[in-house]
């Protein structure tokens, strides 16, 4: 459990940071914010938006639009690597392969025109960076040589 916390905490922090960017810097009209509203925290998110100290137009676009996905890619990659990389089950290859599929899938499907939307190289670069960072962090944080010995399965 202690080992799991080592990668779960930064993963949760990354998700939270992405959410904060959404709440503070993204305009209304995004589903994530609709979902927050629908979950009954509309007033709270509105208050948080009102407290924002950042002049929204002064924040670089990549922070507002690409960083949240990169942080979530980092988080997903970290959790999946943390759970599976040291494992012995053959399923680990399936789950580790899901990381690049999920992270790049949306952008590539947009590039091929399979789903609507515009392919954005910036999203792709930041997403891959987040994915690799998450993978490396997962390796580091779950390395048994650096920490106490842990059981494997």
């Amino acid at each position: 459990m202690k080992r799991a916390l080592r990668y779960l905490l930064p993963a949760v922090a990354a998700v939270a940071l992405g959410g904060i960017i959404y709440i503070f810097l993204r305009p209304p009209g995004y589903a994530f914010i609709h979902w927050l509203d629908a979950s009954g925290v509309k007033d709270l998110t509105n208050q948080l938006k009102g407290c924002s100290l950042f002049p929204a137009h002064a924040v670089p676009g990549w922070v507002v639009y690409s960083l949240p996905n990169a942080l979530w890619a980092f988080s997903y990659s970290l959790i999946i690597t943390g759970i599976w990389f040291r494992g012995r089950s053959g399923l680990k290859y399936f789950w580790l392969a899901s990381i690049p599929f999920l992270v790049t899938g949306f952008e590539l499907l947009q590039l091929t025109g399979t789903i609507p939307g515009t392919f954005c190289p910036q999203d792709m670069v930041l997403g891959i960076t987040g994915m690799i960072s998450g993978f490396l962090a997962g390796l580091k944080l779950t390395n048994p040589n650096n920490h106490e010995r842990s059981t494997t399965f």
């Binding site: 992405g18 589903a31 994530f32 609709h34 979902w35 999920l102």
Partner: peptide, 17 residues
Amino acid sequence: VLLLFFFLATGSLYDLL
């Protein structure tokens, strides 16, 4: 976890699309 991240990813794309 996959579903959660799929939810987050589509949440950020859905309205744009």
